[in-house]
Design a protein around this nucleic acid. Structure first.
Lengths: 237, 237
DNA sequence: TAAAAACTGTGACCGAGATCATAATTTCAT
DNA sequence: ATGAAATTATGATCTCGGTCACAGTTTTTA
């Protein structure tokens, strides 16, 4: 498997810090200061990174891989809240609000993370105030996604919600090829269903319809080829 | 009508800044600096404070009153995203992300707001970095509410969602009296329905059921008396 | 590469909640 | 206080999407 991360002991931490948007704008020296505070860890697919209700007091930044953030209802029904990828972070509400973790976090594939302890991070923010501006920006982006999700769940048909999530994946993970845009799905059908709050069977049926309409082509269970983006956008309403 | 705000020209601005959580922690002098940058405005019930898509480049802080933030779908269906009260703010994504307003904002009653222009605010944040920490805290609170809303919409029955919103109002606007907790509703039935993403008729029916069960008592259209909080909590699931 | 395990598709059925229509109440304005 | 306007309640009906059951595929593993 191809890897694009450096494995020498000294630079890997710096690398991590460099890649993370909230540290953009720091210079070499500052980055290396950040790097000294970072602890790295690796998780395999399916491993739990954070438990809902725990008070892990550190900021967790995803350096490579994908993570789902989710909660269970009392009856055991799962709702996925976020799909985090490279550069995303979580645990900020532990640090800033002093709250317990609001959701479980599980690696969807092999995932490398960087952790910074509460005290170290607070010190960093004090020293480099532009970091907090970056964080505010990231939180605003997150709020916007949730706002749209709430609107979709409250007002839109299941078809529209499915189109919406497919287009989200296209944007994040889509790769153009001669026939269309190939999406490597981050979730199983079950996961997609839980992400938009519907039943697995329903998403199966609707994807079959989209395929019959020539809008998508399902390739195994883990890839979808988008053949007609225009038509998919029309499904949004 | 009783008013608890000072009307002399000099101190009213300072008053406004003092009340707002994101300026807590500033001293007298700093507050008065902030006050100099603030522009006040008043809106009557039903007036639009912000239009979705506009690029009002200022931070808007609610000093008194209530504001609903909402969007329309193409078919004209409304989804309420936030209910803002005293001390809440919006417009931050305009300032920090350079984005257009993500929703309409409308006064639900007579509302006083404070506005700070983008440049002034950026200067403030630079000068008093603890403001940005306060903002991060507020955004985390907002995220948490939206996360719970998404979970409710995705996994919970309409009964549970109604109980949830009633309990939210109890916490925000409830006043204990001898019979129970009196809630002055910020929304009409229509508004409550739009807030949790269901039909107005459905909420009517379910509230009637709750009343028949002796859990609440509806007083006109604008007040609800909660008789049995325990029972209402059980409805959550 | 074959068997096991996990995941997905599909039909049948059902029910919660939407929609429509209309009556009853509440609120507002004069 | 009273009539008009707005809001809410409620019955009838319908439909979308959930649930259950099971067959068919895909993926994993040994």
């Amino acid at each position: 498997m191809k890897t694009n991360s450096c494995d020498c002991g000294t630079c890997r931490h710096k690398l991590c810090a460099q890649r993370v948007p909230i540290f953009f704008g720091l210079n070499e020296e500052e980055l290396s200061h950040v790097a000294d505070l970072i602890q790295r860890r690796q998780y395999l697919k399916g491993e739990i990174i954070q438990l809902e209700g725990s008070d892990a007091d550190c900021l967790t930044i995803i350096n490579q891989g994908k993570v789902k953030a989710f909660r269970y209802t009392q009856e055991g029904k799962e709702q996925i809240l976020y799909l985090f990828s490279e550069g995303d972070f979580f645990g900020e509400s532990n640090l800033f609000g002093g709250r317990k973790a609001a959701y479980h976090a599980e690696a969807l594939e092999r995932t490398h993370i960087c952790m910074i302890a509460r005290n170290d991070f607070q010190e960093l923010v004090r020293r480099y105030p532009e970091i907090s501006v970056k964080i505010i920006g990231a939180l605003c982006t997150r709020l916007e996604r949730l706002e749209t999700t709430v609107q979709n769940m409250g007002t839109r048909s299941v078809e529209a919600r499915i189109s919406s999530v497919l287009l989200e994946f296209v944007e994040k993970y889509g790769v153009k090829n001669s026939k269309g845009i190939l999406i490597a799905l981050p979730f199983s059908r079950e996961g997609m269903a839980s992400y938009i709050g519907i039943a697995r069977e329903t998403i199966s049926r609707k994807l079959t319809l989209l395929q019959d309409a020539g809008i998508i082509e399902m390739i195994g269970n883990k890839k979808i080829l988008l053949l007609n983006e225009e038509a998919l956008r029309r499904e949004l309403d």
